[in-house]
Deep mutational scan, measured.
Amino acid sequence: DRHTIHIGDITIHLEGFSEEELKLAEELIKRGIHLEEVKRILEELYR
């Protein structure tokens, strides 16, 4: 499954994450956390 996060003019595609995980990812990215770090956090929390 493919999910999309929109932040301003930026569109990020993250596959294989639930709606809850994507909301967390979006919040972290909006707070300035680097995408690679966001992915690592999600994997630690949900895998």
Score class of each variant (00 low, 15 high):
1 D>R: 05
1 D>T: 06
1 D>V: 04
1 D>A: 03
1 D>Y: 01
1 D>C: 11
1 D>G: 06
2 R>A: 12
2 R>I: 12
2 R>W: 12
2 R>M: 14
3 H>I: 12
3 H>E: 07
3 H>G: 10
3 H>P: 09
3 H>N: 10
4 T>E: 12
5 I>S: 05
5 I>C: 02
5 I>D: 05
5 I>H: 04
5 I>A: 02
5 I>K: 01
5 I>R: 01
6 H>M: 10
6 H>N: 11
6 H>C: 06
6 H>A: 12
6 H>R: 08
7 I>Y: 09
7 I>R: 04
7 I>F: 09
7 I>Q: 05
7 I>N: 05
8 G>C: 09
8 G>I: 07
8 G>T: 06
8 G>V: 07
8 G>K: 07
8 G>F: 08
8 G>H: 07
8 G>R: 02
8 G>D: 08
8 G>E: 05
8 G>N: 09
9 D>E: 11
9 D>G: 11
9 D>N: 12
9 D>L: 12
10 I>H: 09
10 I>P: 03
10 I>D: 06
10 I>F: 14
10 I>T: 11
11 T>V: 07
12 I>P: 02
12 I>M: 09
12 I>C: 05
12 I>V: 10
12 I>S: 05
13 H>L: 09
13 H>I: 13
13 H>E: 08
13 H>R: 12
13 H>A: 08
14 L>I: 08
14 L>H: 02
14 L>F: 12
14 L>Y: 04
15 E>I: 14
15 E>T: 13
15 E>W: 15
15 E>S: 13
16 G>L: 10
16 G>F: 11
16 G>D: 05
16 G>Y: 09
16 G>H: 07
16 G>Q: 05
17 F>L: 07
17 F>Y: 13
17 F>N: 04
18 S>L: 10
18 S>H: 08
18 S>G: 11
18 S>I: 05
18 S>M: 06
18 S>W: 09
19 E>I: 14
19 E>Y: 14
20 E>H: 05
20 E>N: 07
20 E>V: 08
20 E>Q: 12
21 E>Q: 08
21 E>G: 13
21 E>I: 14
22 L>C: 06
22 L>G: 05
22 L>P: 00
22 L>A: 09
22 L>Y: 12
23 K>C: 02
23 K>T: 08
23 K>E: 06
23 K>R: 13
23 K>S: 07
23 K>W: 11
24 L>G: 01
24 L>C: 04
24 L>T: 11
24 L>Q: 05
24 L>S: 03
24 L>W: 08
24 L>N: 02
25 A>G: 05
25 A>M: 09
25 A>N: 00
25 A>K: 02
26 E>N: 09
26 E>S: 13
26 E>A: 14
26 E>V: 15
26 E>H: 10
26 E>G: 08
27 E>V: 14
27 E>L: 15
27 E>K: 11
27 E>N: 10
27 E>Q: 11
28 L>C: 01
28 L>Q: 00
28 L>W: 14
28 L>R: 00
28 L>I: 02
28 L>K: 00
28 L>S: 00
28 L>D: 00
29 I>E: 00
29 I>C: 04
29 I>S: 02
29 I>H: 02
30 K>L: 13
30 K>Y: 15
31 R>D: 03
31 R>N: 06
31 R>P: 02
31 R>K: 06
31 R>V: 05
31 R>F: 14
32 G>I: 15
32 G>W: 15
32 G>A: 10
32 G>E: 02
33 I>R: 04
33 I>Y: 15
33 I>T: 07
33 I>N: 02
33 I>W: 15
33 I>M: 12
33 I>D: 02
33 I>E: 03
34 H>D: 12
34 H>I: 05
34 H>P: 14
34 H>R: 10
35 L>W: 14
35 L>R: 03
35 L>S: 03
36 E>R: 08
36 E>V: 07
36 E>D: 10
36 E>T: 09
36 E>G: 06
36 E>M: 13
36 E>I: 09
37 E>V: 13
37 E>D: 11
38 V>N: 00
38 V>C: 01
38 V>Y: 02
38 V>S: 00
38 V>H: 00
38 V>T: 00
39 K>L: 15
39 K>D: 01
39 K>C: 10
39 K>V: 13
40 R>I: 04
40 R>Q: 06
40 R>D: 01
40 R>V: 03
40 R>L: 06
40 R>S: 03
40 R>E: 02
41 I>E: 01
41 I>K: 02
41 I>N: 00
42 L>Y: 00
42 L>W: 01
42 L>I: 14
42 L>F: 02
42 L>A: 00
42 L>T: 00
42 L>N: 00
43 E>S: 05
43 E>H: 12
43 E>K: 04
43 E>A: 12
43 E>T: 06
44 E>L: 13
44 E>D: 10
45 L>D: 01
45 L>V: 05
45 L>A: 05
45 L>M: 04
45 L>C: 04
46 Y>W: 13
46 Y>E: 03
46 Y>V: 06
47 R>A: 13
47 R>P: 14
